[in-house]
């Protein structure tokens, strides 16, 4: 037996889903109502979560010593650190985002955006090597694979095919030097064809991604929602 709140949630969810699907027939007020409600609710989540899960436990609580326990023997769990007050500097710097609304100071917004862009660039640099180096090193595959002193033709073919695809696709996007000659053009063309296979795989996967969303909703309507309404009606 579902609780009343859960039933109510399921019924509301079903109505909301039908409202969104009504757009498929044509745009209407029912759709627009729930569309705007969705945006409003989504925007209302973040601010409190930012406070609750980061600003309070990581910054404000230790800053004001609220995380210190006063033990019954007169000692404390740890000495509050005044260094936490240094966080006022990045906090004030972060407040520069709001100069966006004051024309006179709006240039200062670029200070904090610039800083954040710089940080993102630094992180990109730091993250590039652990992500891409294994990609490069794992591409060096043996073209002829021996197994028990005999050539393993299948793996050898796969490796040759893999490296051929990798190089030809890279070559297709290589615009620094002008491509000349039949061999070079054919090589680049092979890269284009192989990319098409990749895009085909992409399309097949996209179909699954999109259809999974639809199937989930229809299942929700056909099972959960109908059951909830039946329970409510009794």
């Amino acid at each position: 037996m579902l609780s009343t709140w859960l039933l109510l949630g399921t019924v509301l969810g079903g109505i909301a889903t039908i409202a969104i699907y009504s757009f498929l027939y044509k745009e209407n007020i029912f759709y627009r109502f729930f569309e705007h409600l969705y945006i409003g609710i989504a925007a209302g989540f973040f601010p409190v979560l930012a406070f609750k899960n980061f600003l309070w436990p990581k910054i404000l609580k230790p800053m004001f010593g609220y995380d210190v326990y006063n033990f019954p023997d007169g000692t404390v769990s740890h000495e509050p650190s005044s260094l936490y007050f240094l966080y006022i500097i990045p906090a004030l710097f972060g407040l520069l985002y709001y100069t966006l609304y004051i024309k006179r100071f709006s240039w200062m917004l670029k200070l904090v955006i610039g800083f954040s862009l710089g940080a993102a660039a630094g992180l990109t640099f730091k993250g590039f090597f652990p992500e891409i180096l294994p990609q490069i090193t794992k591409s060096f595959r043996p073209l002829v694979v021996f197994e028990n002193s005999e050539i393993n033709w299948i793996t050898s073919f796969e490796n040759i095919f893999f490296i051929f695809t990798l190089l030809s696709v890279m070559y297709y996007f290589f615009f620094t030097i002008k491509r000349e000659g039949r061999v070079a053009n054919s090589f680049a063309y092979a890269g284009r064809w192989l990319m098409m296979i990749c895009f085909g795989a992409f399309f097949g996967s996209t179909v699954m991604a999109r259809m999974a969303l639809l199937v989930e909703r229809i299942k929700f309507l056909a099972h959960d929602w109908v059951d909830a309404i039946q329970t409510l009606i009794g």
Binding site: L8, L12, G14, T17, I20, Y38, I41, R217, F220
Partner: peptide, 9 residues
Amino acid sequence: GLFVSLGAA
């Protein structure tokens, strides 16, 4: 109830 259903739909 509302948000998950709306987002999924």
